[in-house]
Write a protein that binds this DNA or RNA. Structure first.
Length: 888
RNA sequence: GGGAGGUUAGCUCAGCGGUUAGAGCACCUGCCUUACACGCAGGGGGUCGUGGGUUCGAAUCCCCCACCUCCCACCA
């Protein structure tokens, strides 16, 4: 075996080995455990956030699979309407053409070709990370099966009146040339201007005289061309006299009425609002209340319309703004301009300011469904992890508005609605059904497609064959855990839950684990434009998939974003190396012996170090599973790391060296090889869900592991707690031994004893303590000699130290060190003084506490008792330390 | 304008009522000790954001304030 492990040398082999191994069975006798992948964009590339989610989903799936569940992790991809169409459109643009020029049919051919070209990318990337998906069940949102589910859902919701078509104000993206939902609008605070414009008031009684002028404030002067009223707050004394009168719109000359409307705040600006029903959601509502006409002056591409007048027609809305301002100024209508910080909605996909437009769209009324989604979380049918998201959930769902589900795109699920020549609209599952309903074949299908999230919302069951009652649906639905980033809680999670309840009467999963966003080492959001985005595959290339997975997993602490530091990843690659070398040690040392992994073993007849590591292993196994179950992956990984490195490597392997190197007889230490191999076997299995490649590689090298599973560690049982292995007495005594050895080493270092220099180490049990400890130390003499730095001329003596030794008392073990040839150092004295100072302080605090009546009366007895014992030990230590010091 | 979260070692973060606050990395001192220098042994480093309160006892619970982050929101 190599001294350093090289992930690249074995990862491809195991990917190959695993192929086809993770197909779930349906039907099955076993309980199932199901995770649906949040489908990545089919033509996209996995980013580091995907890598995090992949690591966690795979961890859960592998863990449950090893526990014997019929585990299904269903993979797939999303057609991602806007994003994908945009990519292809850009490509067309570079070819000097456009989708309009190509026409819908040829454009879609192009889209499919593009999709086919990238279709395998996601799969390959997931495999690189070690994802144990069931590839036989892979799905794509535009698959026939899923498309059928989409039509079914749409038709049902339409029949129930929950999907309807109507003319409303929507958020329009001029760049994308489509309506977008409220969620796709990102509000940004921008520095803008507030323009004060004077509108003359028409006054027939004072014809010819200088007219009264009122001033309105606006951030968007270009929209004034579409004004159809001026509004003031009802009861505003400043403007009550305008009731029933008209203003004359500057530049246009149109007579527009004054109206009183509660949406207007008398306190803001001038207390007057220009009303542009076509280009402002609030104005749209005002117009509706007062029956005002709407004049559209900006078109769907963000250009001024004919209605804006000859001079401006065709001009971009922002150029038009400047022009309008110029004209107003020239006409003396511009009273003043102020700097103004306000919020503007931007299209989050294309980045330009959204243009509110009135248009005919399909909407989904989700208010009723939201009720059940709220109830699901309140009742515990659905658990959000971490629970801090419950409030966000409440707030959003309690205030949901109708969801605009139609998009003026070509790439996606075409809306299953057809128009008859006479204008009737028919919604049906197919064109045939529509023709039957309409009584004519002369139908034109709605050109629009559905919001991508509509199909994503059906993902947990559409992937299993819904609306058919398939075997898969029966076996795997509802699913168990959803793992996704918190930024799509509403986009996706909420909609899945709403759709799930509405269409299948159950929550599509019982637990939703929301991860943080992966950021760079400085905590900056990763983005392509900033250039700090990390490609997970490059990380895999450099550190190995296991290190990438381990790092992301241990950093996943609830409710936190994840700062990804390459240094840290190097640290966990080192952990992989540690695992590699621990195994290498065992295999090298045991080469030629007949020691094998034992499927079953017990502590009977074993020496203390062996019983200790088994006891620690049992406890670690329990904690790890418990932490996995609680979705505390960070804590689980910490346990794994600490057990393997801190207990198994730092102590047990060292403890195993005397017998393995022939310094201790097999009588004193029976079956050390078997224990070591068996502990390694269990440890690798414990680690497997997080570090699948390395553990598989090493596990196959362990002699005897075939008895556990002939084929793969991935199907070997996950180690469980073994109460018969746990031994509190052994843990206490071995703990004392470890503490004593550690203190011996640090005292030796303080004494300036160098490696190889002779040192006499005295160890003896404190008389009042554990009565078995002395015998135990006697038993472990060989081990102690191995662990203590005595040099060739020194020794470990299990008897009280002579006067003049440096002394201490640790965990019931007295220790005294005599450096056989040393110069007393000033540093050592300093350190002792410091140590004594700390001890004094703590003794003082503890005494005070114990002298406090209130503490004695109110604190639980075991705490008080603990403090008493602590004080006794502290005082004992002080004495020992002082004695050693006094001797010098 | 609402809401949520954060503020703990140089950095990134755990800990969230009980004795001596932890980890990884970084740092310092020794070591190439036959598993591993992606290593071993030892070590330094924190008045747990400020100010109050509850409690025998507070990083931990409550209140105030400060600063940071995110989400939601039609004051033109």
């Amino acid at each position: 075996m190599e001294k350093q492990f090289d992930p690249k040398s074995f990862e491809p082999r195991w990917r190959e080995h695993w192929r086809g191994l993770f197909a779930a069975e349906a039907p099955s006798e076993r309980s199932s455990f199901v995770i649906m992948i949040p489908p990545p964009n089919v033509t996209g590339k996995l980013h580091i956030g995907h890598a995090l989610q992949t690591a966690l989903q795979d961890l859960l799936t592998r863990w449950k699979r090893m526990q014997g569940y019929n585990a299904l992790w269903l993979p797939g991809t999303d057609h991602a309407g806007i994003a994908t169409q945009l990519m292809v459109e850009r490509q067309l643009e570079s070819e000097g053409t456009s989708r309009e020029e190509l026409g819908r049919e040829r454009f879609l051919e192009r889209m499919w070709a593009w999709t086919a070209q990238y279709g395998d990318n996601i799969r390959q990337q997931l495999e690189r990370l070690g994802a144990s998906c069931d590839w036989s069940r892979e799905r794509f949102t535009l698959d026939e099966g899923l498309s059928r589910a989409v039509r079914e859902a749409f038709v049902r919701l339409h029949e129930e009146g929950l999907i309807y078509r109507g003319e409303y104000m929507v958020n329009w993206s001029p760049v994308l040339d489509t309506a977008i939902s409220d969620l796709e609008v990102e509000t940004r605070t921008v520095q803008g201007k507030l323009y004060y414009v004077a509108y003359p008031v028409e006054d027939p009684d004072r014809a010819g005289a200088e007219p009264e002028r009122v001033v309105v404030a606006t951030t968007r002067p270009e929209t004034m061309l579409g004004d159809t009223a001026v509004a003031f707050a009802p009861g505003d004394p400043h403007y009550a006299h305008l009731e029933g009168r008209h203003a004359v719109l500057p530049l246009v000359g149109r007579r527009i009425p004054f109206v009183a409307d509660p949406a207007v705040e008398a306190e803001f600006g001038t207390g007057l609002v220009k009303v542009t029903p076509s280009h402002d959601p609030a104005d749209f509502e005002i117009a509706r209340r007062h029956g005002l006409p709407a004049i559209q002056v900006i078109d769907r591409r963000g250009r001024m319309t004919e209605a804006a007048g000859e001079e401006l027609a065709g001009l971009d809305r922002f150029e038009a703004r400047q022009k309008v301002v110029d004209r107003l100024r020239e006409g003396g209508h511009l009273v003043k301009v102020e700097d103004y910080v306000h919020n503007v909605g931007f299209s989050d996909r294309s980045g330009e300011p959204v243009e509110p437009l009135v248009s005919t769209q399909w909407f989904c009324d989700v208010s009723g469904m939201a009720e059940r989604a709220l109830e699901a979380v309140r009742s515990g049918a659905l658990t959000l992890v971490p629970p801090t998201y419950e409030k966000t959930w409440e707030h959003w769902l309690a205030n949901v508005k109708p969801w605009c589900v139609s998009r003026q795109l070509w790439w996606g699920h075409r809306i299953p609605a057809w128009y008859a020549p006479d204008g009737r609209v028919v919604v049906a599952r197919s064109e045939e059904a529509a023709a039957e309903k309409a009584g004519t074949r002369e139908l034109r299908q709605d050109p629009d497609v559905l919001d991508t999230w509509f199909s994503s919302g059906l993902w947990p069951f559409s992937t299993l064959g819904w609306p058919e009652e398939t075997e898969d649906l029966r076996t795997f639905y509802p699913t168990d855990v959803l793992v996704t980033a918190h930024d799509i809680l509403f986009f996706w999670v909420a909609r899945m839950v709403m759709m799930g309840y509405h269409l299948t009467d159950r929550s599509p999963f019982h637990t939703c684990h929301l991860t943080g966003l992966v950021r760079d080492a400085e905590g900056q959001k990763m983005s392509k434009t900033k250039g700090n985005a990390v490609d997970p595959l490059e990380l895999v290339e450099e550190y190995g998939a296991d290190a990438v997975r381990f790092t992301l997993t241990i950093l996943d602490s609830p409710g936190r974003d994840i700062p990804l530091d390459p240094e840290r990843m190097a640290g966990y690659r080192a952990f992989g190396n540690k695992i590699w070398n621990a195994t290498r040690f065992a295999l090298t040392r045991l080469e030629g012996s007949d020691a094998r992994v034992l499927p079953e073993l017990g502590p009977e007849g074993l020496a203390a170090p062996e019983r200790w590591i088994l006891s620690r292993l049992s406890r670690s196994a329990e904690e790890v599973s418990e932490r996995f179950a609680a979705l505390r992956f960070d804590e689980a990984c910490n346990r794994l790391y600490h057990f393997f490195w801190g207990e198994l490597c730092d102590w047990y392997i060292e403890l195993a060296k005397p017998p393995l190197l022939g310094r201790q007889s097999a009588d004193e230490r029976p079956r050390v090889g078997e224990v070591l191999l068996s502990v390694l076997d269990r440890s690798l299995r414990l680690l497997h869900p997080v570090m699948p490649f390395l553990t598989e590689e090493l596990w196959h090298r362990l002699p005897g592991r075939e008895a556990i599973h002939p084929q793969t560690i991935a199907l070997a049982p996950y180690p469980e707690r073994r109460p018969d292995w746990e031994d509190a007495d052994v843990e206490a005594r071995m703990g004392a031994l470890i503490d004593a050895v550690t203190r011996v080493r640090s005292l030796a270092a303080e004494l300036g004893v160098r490696r190889g220099q002779d040192l006499s180490v005295h160890l003896w049990a404190e008389p009042d303590g554990d009565p078995g400890l002395a015998a135990f130390l006697e038993e472990q003499k060989t081990v102690l000699e191995w662990l203590c730095p005595t040099g060739d001329g020194g020794a470990v003596e299990l008897s009280p130290a002579p006067a003049g030794a440096s002394r201490d008392l640790v965990a019931g073990v007295n220790l005294g060190l005599v450096a056989l040839a040393r110069e007393p150092g000033a540093e050592e004295r300093e350190r002792l003084v410091g140590e004594l100072g700390k001890l004094e302080a703590e003794i003082g605090r503890t005494r005070e506490r114990l002298a406090n009546r209130q503490f004695l009366d109110k604190a639980p007895p075991e705490i008080v008792e603990g403090n008493r014992r602590r004080l006794a030990e502290l005082e004992e230590r002080r004495e020992r330390l002082a004695a050693g010091r006094g001797a010098r």
